[in-house]
Design a protein around this nucleic acid. Sequence first.
DNA 1: TCCCTCCGATTACAGATGTAGTCTTATATG
DNA 2: CATATAAGACTACATCTGTAATCGGAGGGA
Lengths: 122, 122
Amino acid sequence: MVDRISDGEHAVMDVLWDEAPLTAAEVAERIDPARGWSDRTVKTMLARLLAKGALAHEEDGRRYLYRPLVARADYAARESRKLIDRLFGGRAAPLVAHLAEQDQLSPQDIAEIEALLKALKP
Amino acid sequence: MVDRISDGEHAVMDVLWDEAPLTAAEVAERIDPARGWSDRTVKTMLARLLAKGALAHEEDGRRYLYRPLVARADYAARESRKLIDRLFGGRAAPLVAHLAEQDQLSPQDIAEIEALLKALKP
DNA sequence: TCCCTCCGATTACAGATGTAGTCTTATATG
DNA sequence: CATATAAGACTACATCTGTAATCGGAGGGA
């Protein structure tokens, strides 16, 4: 049911992934001010996310409390897979290789990833 | 100038990243048949990619030869960075951690990445 | 020479997206 | 009690995308 979360919708999900449930007004307060959104825009995003099943809402007096229905990790997994499929032939290693070539890995990143991989090995 | 390459446009870029220059008809032949596109659709994509500066074309008699202006690696870098910024707080290590947790790394991936990282270290 | 065909250019049109504005209704306040 | 507000519901509208169809001109065959 949750087809695709657009970039704008993602900003709303981000807020609710950090803290939920929240009212529409509370979500609007927490949206990255850099977007310069009016609260109407936030309400539109909430309505669209509800319609596509990414959020649930429960009544709280005469307003709603919104809560995510998709987990951030699930969404991240889907998006990562799409990127890897589209750009790296479906395999993760070329993505890491790519990041490495582009110097997008700090020494700290490298250390962390090595530790991770070590832990993964049988 | 190359703002965003949509999913459909990406299918066309993929063909031209593999082989260029090509005529519109040649691109159409090479598009993944799974898309079921008419050649009109391919022409539309070519026109849009031209307009947004992702392709160049040169005349060849009464038709054009198209070639990419953005490199696949550059595009991959931009898209990877966007994903990492949006979903992983701008750091690559959590992405790899995430792939690991989701069992999206095969033993071969792990071996390859380890070798890569080893080579990166001073 | 005249028409058919193949190409690019232009136009179409519905659904998604960004970005709100207006309508309706149920409280809260004077 | 009457009315101003504030929430959600519905509507708006331009742009981007997917997916073509149509128009107009240049070459090639009859």
